[in-house]
């Protein structure tokens, strides 16, 4: 029953992903590895589309993954799975908002959760990195070390890093501008 499994997997992501949008990413990689519904490279494309379209990133990714896996019903079920834990938890704590925020166990728990989330997202980032900047398959078949690196991609990554982090005027631009520019670079330089 793919729909039940979809709901369950996204319920899990909604329950354990703390810290917004990107926090769902490690769970999506986990789903990809354990079910084979979609590949790592499809997932990277979904992240790009989710960043460049309206709506919360986490919700967009759930819809996209659900659609890829099981069509329109899949999109709906994955999204409902993702938001169900939120609805339950928020409805439970809404009445005792102050007490929840000031509870020392909640506070201490989140003190440990936040760095965990960072570590998980960084690890998911490594998977995208491997895919985008290195030609692992080509290297395995030729054994030539220079084949391992995708030099065009590495140059683009370096340029983007500088533009998004250190150039004052560009730093605050919406990610969609950088995504669109990267698409153009990809086509022009035949990535």
């Amino acid at each position: 029953m793919i729909y039940l499994r979809l709901f369950y997997e996204f319920f899990k992501a909604g329950l354990f992903a703390v810290g917004g949008g990107m926090a769902t990413l490690p769970f999506l990689y986990d789903i990809s590895d354990s079910t084979g519904w979609f590949t790592h490279s499809q997932l990277a494309d979904m992240v790009a589309v989710s960043e460049s379209t309206p709506g919360p990133i986490g919700v967009n990714m759930a819809t996209y993954v659900g659609f890829t896996t099981a069509g329109i019903p899949g999109a709906i079920i994955a999204t409902l799975g993702l938001v169900t834990p939120s609805i339950i938890i928020i409805l439970l704590i809404a009445k005792a908002l102050k007490a929840f925020r000031q509870n020392k166990y909640v506070d201490a728990g989140f003190y440990g959760l936040r760095p965990c989330s960072v570590g998980l997202i960084a690890a998911a980032g490594i998977l995208v990195l491997k895919l985008a900047l290195f030609n692992t398959e080509l290297y395995q078949s030729t054994g030539v070390l220079t084949d391992l690196f995708n030099f065009k991609a590495i140059a683009l990554a370096a340029a983007l890093l500088i533009l998004t982090r250190y150039v004052k005027k560009l730093k605050d631009l919406h990610p969609i501008f950088f995504i669109a520019a990267s698409a153009v670079v990809g086509i022009v330089f035949a990535f």
Partner: peptide, 24 residues
């Protein structure tokens, strides 16, 4: 185009990580 975009996704994830890192 998507090969180019994937490079950008790497950088965006990296930026998200450094931002969250500072807070957590």
């Amino acid at each position: 185009a998507f090969a180019g975009i994937r490079v950008c996704v790497c950088v965006l994830i990296f930026n998200a990580v450094t931002k969250l890192w500072k807070k957590s």
